[in-house]
Write a protein that binds this DNA or RNA. Structure first.
Lengths: 341, 341
DNA sequence: ATGAAAGCGCTAACAG
DNA sequence: CTGTTAGCGCTTTCAT
């Protein structure tokens, strides 16, 4: 315990409030606010210096909770993803946190574990914590999303193409990306191209990547290859691929709708002693770092995580509805060894 | 807009406060608190029912910020990791969030990007947000950690063996784990075992896994194999392994001190057309899901993420200093194909 | 069993 | 340029 100028001071221990700083600097609490926030009123240079000195000596840290109560904003963004350990979402969450931090916002991320009820709870929790907006990769249907009670907190949908009335969407153009990936395989001469698709909670919803695969095949005059639905995990990709290999006729190429699925597929293929890409070629979707270091490295349809992060945060923080539309971001085909180039 | 019992109600839009609920239910705000929190005062069954009805109709969500101000706790835990996209930390963060959620706490996670200054900023940010505790995988030295002004907020160190006075530590027993992994390689007959180690910001600090490797080698009467320091990334593992392969004498086995490093190593090995485990065996550390799906699947020293999460949250939330010590958790050797078993 | 009111730390309108 | 004060939404003591 230290005594400074007759005041009892315990740097770093108990909570130091703005009142302590004011007393130490011999000013009112308002003045402390003015110097901390640079306004709204001017403060004499000498006074400001005394306040700053007091802040330093007392190791004062403003209480963001109190500030949030007063201001009606905690400068906090919320985010919900279906699987926070999926590298794609891990990278995306990180990117969004960086962009948000640059604007002075922190990111409170939640994991719905691909469960509707958990997502609802996550949403309620974020709402009660007064986040300024929620960036949401939902597992709910548009009508269910619309029905959530969010106290007027803005939301931004990511990672899907369907739209919810009044809720802006920022997403990769899954369908076009899938078209590009499958066309690349077709360009290699493949006629029998399978697809691995994530199973959706809502069976009526179709993955746009599935549509893109169909489109590319149809446009090339090819018949649709086998389709395997599975969990959006490495294990899911592994199991789906094993089922694929048990079929009477083996496809010559696989389009996996995520890196995770592709990584699982690779293992199944290796275990079956198949050579990649000679016996069977693989193209995946996402372009996470993991796809770069698999064996063989995956040719992949890369989503631009940075652009999504930028656009999502901008949409989340823009109060004007000028951005109330759906934004579709382009993909980039990354050529590596798994396609046979 | 809806009118209920003469009151103007807009479910889901503007903020509904406890005052609105009280008015709608025809009670005082105190009573609303009593029924929401189940105390501290009893409420007549009929009154409670009216309040609950009002909450439902108005879609009232308590304001956690205001509650935090009053209670002095936001029921929020903070966490800082050096790389949130490293699957190990992604899985650990998720596990901690689950454990925290079970106790009614949310988790605010930050990424220091292995940068000391960023970690300091992250810490300050969490402190000002009044988190109840900070779970920290630090890149700072013990004295630097101790020097941080944290306003008395408790911290728990994870992912390291060194201790900071007064700060409890929960960590895997890195050294023993490394010993087990290297011994396994020795048991396979390897005499020339290299190690891949993460480069530390603080060069004076040695990775306990490095020590474990030395110990196992010494105890077996073997000379130390080559050591490669590198970034704690897949790319880092890749580059380190390429350097390893350029050396005059190639080791017959590699101990990688993380899955990420091992995955990078695998790619370098494949590119060099080396057969794993025949030409060169690999054992890694962590036991993330990624290690299970690489080719070949990695024999790995698994950290118990769930135990770490449990212990870290318990330590973070226990005010008594009974847990003020260092806890070292045991590892488990997972045998897969990369070691040659 | 219920209500009135103080107070958590901060901001900003208003007054000097 | 500086100070006083009301109020953000909630909890809880103290009255009734």
């Amino acid at each position: 315990m230290v005594f400074v100028a007759g005041l009892q001071v315990q740097p770093g221990s108990g909570k130091v409030t703005r009142t302590d700083v004011a007393r130490y600097a011999g000013v009112s609490t308002a003045v402390v606010s003015y110097v901390i926030n640079g306004g709204p009123k001017p403060v004499a240079a000498a006074t400001a210096a005394r306040v700053r000195e007091a802040i330093k000596v007392l190791q004062y840290q403003p209480n963001a909770t109190a500030r949030a109560l007063t201001m009606g904003s905690a400068r906090l963004l919320g985010m919900i993803v279906p699987d926070s350990t999926n590298p794609y979402f891990a990278e995306l969450t990180d990117a969004i946190a960086q962009v948000a931090a640059a604007r002075g916002y922190a990111l409170l991320a939640a994991n719905s574990r691909t469960d509707a009820e958990t997502e609802r709870q996550n949403t309620l929790s974020l709402v009660s914590r007064q986040v300024d907006a929620i960036i949401l990769a939902t597992v709910l249907s548009p009508s269910e999303v619309a029905a959530m009670p969010v106290q007027g907190i803005p939301r931004v949908l990511i990672d899907q193409s369907s739209t919810v009335h009044g809720v802006p969407t920022v997403s990769t153009d899954f369908e076009q990306g899938a078209v590009a990936g499958v066309q690349h395989l077709i360009g290699h001469g493949h006629r029998d191209i399978a697809i691995l698709v994530g199973r959706d909670i809502d069976p009526s919803r179709v993955d746009p990547r599935h549509n893109g695969w169909k489109t590319a095949l149809r446009d090339a005059g090819l018949t649709e290859g086998p389709v395997e639905f599975t969990d959006f995990t490495r294990q899911g990709g592994y199991e789906a691929t094993r089922r694929l290999l048990e079929r009477p006729k083996r496809p010559t190429a696989i389009f996996a709708s995520s890196d995770l699925l592709a990584v699982g597929a690779l293992l199944a293929l290796h275990e079956a002693d198949l050579s990649i890409p000679d016996d069977i070629a693989v193209v995946s979707f996402d372009g996470t770092s993991e796809s770069e270091f698999s064996w063989p490295p995956l040719t992949t349809v890369r989503q631009s995580i940075n652009l999504i992060a930028e656009a999502a945060v901008r949409a989340a923080l823009s109060s004007d509805d000028s951005e109330g539309k759906a934004q579709l971001l382009a993909t980039e085909l990354i050529i590596r060894r798994s396609c046979g180039c």
